[in-house]
Amino acid sequence: MLLAVAQGQEPATLSGAELSRSAAGDTLLCRFSGEPFLSESVQSTLLSGLPVLINLNLIIRTDGQIRLRENKRFRMSYDIWEDQYQLDGAGERYLFPDLEQLRAFWSAFNWKIVFPRQAENAEKNLGGRITAKLTLLTANQGRELRDWLFNDNQTEETSPGLMRDTGFQLDLNSLISLLWSSKNDTERSESYAANLTAKPAVKEE
């Protein structure tokens, strides 16, 4: 059973994870089901207008030695105005008109990695591990200092048309609370992982 776990605990198992070499030879294909990426807590986060960050890490080993590290980052969000889900990552933007299509995208996620074929013996010990971390952002996460710095409060004339008065105001309360208040735990995360063992070669799509 797949369970989302709290930060710091062992990650839940990612289902359907497999690693196979393409028939062409120089490409590895990592497959897994990312359906748990749309857990209830993720869905409610998305529907409340907040984005979810997905960080995927892949390690490829041969003979127990790490040969390759790959990383992919996605930002998943729901746009209530356009009534669509949006996924940004790896320089691409994907739009999904409903949750089912987004779920279908994640349910059989294919990750192609360029990994030239090695000696036949080494190939037998081909394996790896895929980990996924979902960060459920709250709007305040990491924002206070940036807001204080960049949301400058510039002022203009108070009596229209009389005197041009340009200046700025600083909110000292926010600065004080940034320096002295205890850090709120505003970030929640879900982690998933799976070990990968090489399967027979598949024809690359």
């Binding site: 209530i80 009534d83 340009t166 200046g167 105001q169 600083l170």
Partner: peptide
């Protein structure tokens, strides 16, 4: 579909507001 619920989440401020101001007046 086409309807929305607006949730306003606020954290009250307990202290008086302190402000620093500067600018250039014509």
């Amino acid at each position: 579909k086409g309807q929305a619920v607006l949730t306003v989440i606020v954290t009250e401020r307990r202290w008086p507001f302190f402000q620093f101001k500067s600018g250039y007046n014509e």
